[in-house]
């Protein structure tokens, strides 16, 4: 059995939630939350936390002299894969022009999720 401590992000209250986990990683008890939103947040955070990853990479051939284009994962990925995604983007550069929504990298770090542009660069 172990306990996980979380800060709820549902509202400014920022409840300190304690989740008691069983030996098979099952949730035994959630305490400290003061509303149902806190419980569902805690449930997701301890079982399958995910994040959208955003970053920026170099571009070449920009008519307007831009050096970077920003990008994001098209959907959220498991939290423990964030650094893998970032590693996969090291040292790469993409050609201009780029439009918002263009797929810049397919299946980044084997997550099954694409990286898409979040900025227009001519």
């Amino acid at each position: 059995m172990n306990t996980v401590n979380l800060t709820c992000i549902g509202c400014p209250l920022g409840c300190q939630i304690e989740v008691m986990m069983g030996d098979d990683n099952e949730i035994l008890l959630i305490t400290g939350n003061t509303c149902p939103r806190g419980e569902s947040y805690a449930r997701k955070e301890v079982t399958a936390p995910t994040r959208i990853v955003t970053s920026s990479v170099r571009v070449y051939g920009s008519r307007t002299g831009e050096r970077m284009v920003s990008l994001k994962t098209a959907s959220d990925i498991p939290k423990d894969r964030i650094m893998d995604v970032i590693r996969d983007l090291r040292g790469v550069a993409v050609p201009c022009p780029v439009r918002i929504g263009d797929v810049l990298f397919k299946d980044v770090a084997g997550t099954g999720v694409d990286m898409i542009a979040t900025k227009n660069v001519d």
Binding site: I52, T54, S55, S56, S70, K72, I100, T118, K119
Partner: peptide, 19 residues
Amino acid sequence: CIHNGFGLHTFQEELTGPE
């Protein structure tokens, strides 16, 4: 501001700053 979290109220979706 290339991180996401913009536009939840305006567009009901999470956009990055440039978007």
